[in-house]
């Protein structure tokens, strides 16, 4: 409860700060729109040459793109401003020390100290594309399908955050290693259906770096409802990712504070 209040406070402060620069707001909104338009244009070009992409129809891919855009928005709004640069800002310049002495869990403080609210426009745009894609779909998805989609989007958000923490935690062992931008690059692979990739890569993206659960899983739940295995699998992956992040973060912190390790 206290953490929720703290999160709301820091987000509203960041938002207020962001809104004082109105020109930037317009600029970022336009840029998000242009970026999304370019992605949608790419999808349209692809489907002008084919009817299906790795078995996915155009409305399905649109839902996927929308979901991906939404999650990218979440990532740029909340995860990137805090966790990108954690090795430099957090460990080498000592901001982590500052968080460690604050009376709240360090993982929370490190993850939510700030935000880039303007990037939130991307979340709204992504959601609009999801609705548009679902609307043009042959079978109209029902409330249950949307519920499953929302649940898996939430799970994907947690997974994204957990992977961000895992990448950031590497800094405890190698302070000069900043692989967050690598995460950002690999993240792009989730933009298209996981079925596109050859089997070994698909395995990698499911079990090692859980990109397949990020946009593909919620989209499947919406486009082809009624697969409890998918739902459970995705949730299990999320739980595993969060657990791994917590364990690694704690081990890293023990090392950082000189308590064994």
């Amino acid at each position: 409860m206290k953490l929720l209040k703290l999160f709301a406070t820091s987000f509203s402060l960041s938002l207020r700060q962001a809104l004082t620069f109105r020109a930037n707001l317009v600029f970022d909104a336009v840029l998000s729109g242009v970026a999304l338009a370019s992605t949608i244009a790419t999808v349209l070009i692809i489907f002008s040459r084919t009817g299906r992409l790795a078995g996915w129809t155009q409305p399905e891919v649109l839902v996927l793109i929308g979901t991906f855009e939404l999650l990218s928005g979440v990532k740029t709004t909340f995860v990137d401003p805090n966790l990108a640069g954690f090795p430099t800002r957090g460990v080498r310049q000592g901001q982590l020390d500052h968080h460690l002495l604050q009376p709240a869990p360090s993982m929370f403080l490190v993850s939510f100290a700030t935000a880039a609210p303007l990037a939130g426009v991307q979340i709204l745009l992504g959601f609009a594309v999801v609705l548009a894609g679902a609307g043009t779909s042959a079978h109209h998805p029902g409330a249950g399908a949307f519920g499953a989609w929302a649940l898996l989007v939430l799970a994907a958000t947690l997974t994204t955050w957990a992977v961000g923490i895992l990448f950031a935690s590497l800094a405890f062992w190698a302070p000069r290693l900043d692989l967050h931008s690598l995460f950002g690059s690999v993240w792009q692979l989730a933009r298209y259906p996981a079925d596109l990739y050859a089997r070994p890569l698909r395995r990698l993206f499911t079990y090692v770096l859980p990109l397949a659960v990020i946009a593909s899983a919620p989209t499947r739940a919406l486009a082809r409802p009624g697969s409890p295995a998918l739902l459970l699998g995705a949730l299990a992956t999320t739980a595993a990712a969060v657990l791994a992040a917590t364990v690694v973060w704690r081990a890293g912190l023990r090392r950082y504070t000189g308590a064994g390790g």
Binding site: I46, R49, T50, L53, A54, R176, L177, D178, L179, S181, L182, G184, S185, V186, Q188, L189, R191, Y192, L196, Y197
Partner: peptide
């Protein structure tokens, strides 16, 4: 030279776009 890992991140960053294109368009055609 001191930051080989950053170079690797950049390589992945720059390679990933065309490689996704490769995968997608190999599936289309």
């Amino acid at each position: 030279a001191g930051t080989w890992w950053f170079t690797v991140s950049l390589v992945v960053n720059y390679a990933v776009g065309p490689l996704i294109g490769l995968v997608v368009w190999s599936a289309v055609l």
